[in-house]
Design a protein around this nucleic acid. Structure first.
Lengths: 228, 228
DNA sequence: AACGGCTTGATTGTCAACAATCGCTTACGG
DNA sequence: CCGTAAGCGATTGTTGACAATCAAGCCGTT
């Protein structure tokens, strides 16, 4: 079933890249036509996304991209602090030269993307940095949890304040330095501060009008958008 | 859709209570007849369980209860240590009298169940103790993660060694005492030790023959079984 | 003009029949 | 006797049609 997985991955990625704002209505027939699949396929993909808490699925009311409230945002960031602190604690000192090189390469690409006004790529690389840290622990369970939280993070950010968040001054570099020194405490502290900063980027709620889907969904390889 | 949720919850609970051994084949038609629902209903329930990693779903090969390997067992326990340490750290000193009373009541019931040779109830109450701790943090994200890990724990235990695990000498009481004293460090240490103990209950692998399902699934309110 | 009920269109949920695939048995040849 | 390949039964995957439900607009009454 490559069809269903394609759809699932595509929607998940669209949410992760902040192309699908919270509250966006997802109509089965519309998605089926857009992706050239049957409605049943759409249905199971939506079931899976619902289980991931990325969409809300109320009986007979259809599916819409999840719109987490402030409480969920708080809980989600608290959980990220717990898990990602543990990740850097595990990694400190134990990471090898190849790993450090890979992380620094991501850092470079990320900063370059932001400098060149490609904030979408920047966001993607920033997320990838966190995912890569989790992957390096070798703990698949932690990795899966963190990836789930990474996918939900754009939703809590966009639900809380309007637009282009996560253009924070990236202190990812300092974390890598601490990892290289084997300074677990500093790495933990820096990671927590980093996540605090991200969380504090909150603003007052707003209501973004859900636009047409086609442009949002089939943008997988395009770059566009500005960064405030 | 109460039907589909009923099935999902029932299967999940059967796995949690170790009534469904790892590797048990779950045939769609069979489940549909057992629960008096249509096959489509079974199908979406299985999709959800698969997303929870409680079952394995290979195309055209059907669904079976997940059979996690030793690596997954290690990762799962490591993750439980991370999350549940954080839970008791958050709770230490901040838990109120009502909370302490509720926990101690669970402890009593649990010990009583084991003393009265009702290991199934004991297991259920033991799991409930961990779930209750997570709930008390007020962090729904952490709570959901821990509940997912609790559901998967029986699978990694049964996949690694044969039968009636988790009849460990329960040191839950000491954890509650530390929480009452507000001794976060001790609570963390005790929780880690407790989980270590559980993990060390491993034995060599074995192959339990998947028996008939009806007896296993519709045992929701019955008590039976012995404890080695 | 405000209100309530009704009709209608759109959307989701359900179902049963059909198609595809897999594992196993069986038959055959070496 | 062993290995191999074809056939078969069982199981899963897919599809289109139908039923149920909801939201919105319309109409008539007060």
């Amino acid at each position: 079933m490559p069809d269903e997985d394609r759809l699932y991955q595509s929607l998940k990625r669209a949410i992760l890249e902040q192309r699908l704002p919270p509250g966006t209505r997802l109509r089965e027939l519309q998605l089926a036509e857009l992706y050239g699949v049957k409605r049943g396929t759409v249905r199971t993909a939506l079931t899976r996304l619902s289980q991931d808490r990325l969409i809300r699925h109320r009986p007979h009311a259809g599916a819409q991209v999840a719109r987490p409230d402030a409480g969920e945002a708080r809980d989600l960031f608290a959980t990220r602090r717990i898990l990602e602190s543990a990740v850097v604690r595990m990694l400190a000192g134990r990471i090898d030269a190849d790993g450090l090189r890979a992380l620094r390469r991501l850092l470079d690409e990320e900063q370059q993307a932001y400098r060149q006004q490609r904030p979408r790529d920047g966001l993607r690389l920033s997320v990838q940095f966190h995912a890569e840290l989790a992957r390096m622990t070798g703990n698949r369970v932690v990795q899966d949890f963190i990836e789930e939280l990474l996918a939900r993070t754009p939703l809590v950010l966009l639900s809380a304040g309007p637009a282009p968040r996560s253009c924070v001054n990236h202190d990812h570099g300092a974390i890598v330095d601490a990892l290289e020194r084997g300074d677990a405490e500093a790495a933990e502290r820096l990671m927590q501060a980093h996540l605090d900063e991200l969380e504090q980027g909150f603003l007052q709620p707003s209501e973004p009008p859900p636009a047409d889907l086609r442009a949002l969904l089939f943008d997988d390889e395009e770059a566009s958008g500005e960064c405030a």
